[in-house]
């Protein structure tokens, strides 16, 4: 059993919402369109799927963790978003945008002092 943020790793990763129809993260030719024109396109997989893949490869992929925090917040679990974001900031206290995002999340929770503190850190890191 491997652990991640204090939870069994797979349990955490499985908390990322994954759409029923998982698309592959590769380029492939689309089927012929109704007009009979064959087109080639890049289909980007769902962001949650990419995050999950990256974290399975490297549980401390900082970019994936940052987006995981955003996915949690976007799903309404702002507290979990802050928890993951704090982990990001422990890994890299100067991660671009992280302090301002933390300020945003604290504001969403009505935590004014924490918001102000995070914003001040952001100003120091990214003036």
């Amino acid at each position: 059993m491997t652990w991640f943020l204090g939870f069994p790793r797979l349990a955490v990763l499985s908390s990322v919402r994954v759409p029923r129809h998982i698309r592959r993260g590769i380029a492939w030719p689309l089927a012929e369109s109704p007009e009979g024109i064959c087109v080639t396109a890049f289909e980007r997989p769902d962001t949650a799927v990419i995050v999950r893949q990256r974290l399975l490869e490297n549980a401390e992929d900082i970019d994936a963790l940052f987006v995981l925090a955003a996915l949690h917040a976007n799903d309404g679990d702002v507290a979990e978003g802050i928890t993951v974001l704090n982990h990001v900031l422990r890994l890299d206290p100067a991660y671009p945008g992280a302090w301002r995002f933390k300020a945003t999340l604290h504001r969403m929770r009505g935590e004014n002092d924490a918001e102000r503190s995070a914003w001040q850190r952001a100003e120091a890191v990214e003036p």
Partner: peptide, 21 residues
């Protein structure tokens, strides 16, 4: 140059983080 992921669903949530300044 800030190369920002093109995920519209997270755009507004992250806008202050990315676009400030």
């Amino acid at each position: 140059l800030w190369d920002i992921m093109g995920t519209p669903t997270l755009r507004d949530l992250l806008k202050e983080a990315y676009y400030h300044g």
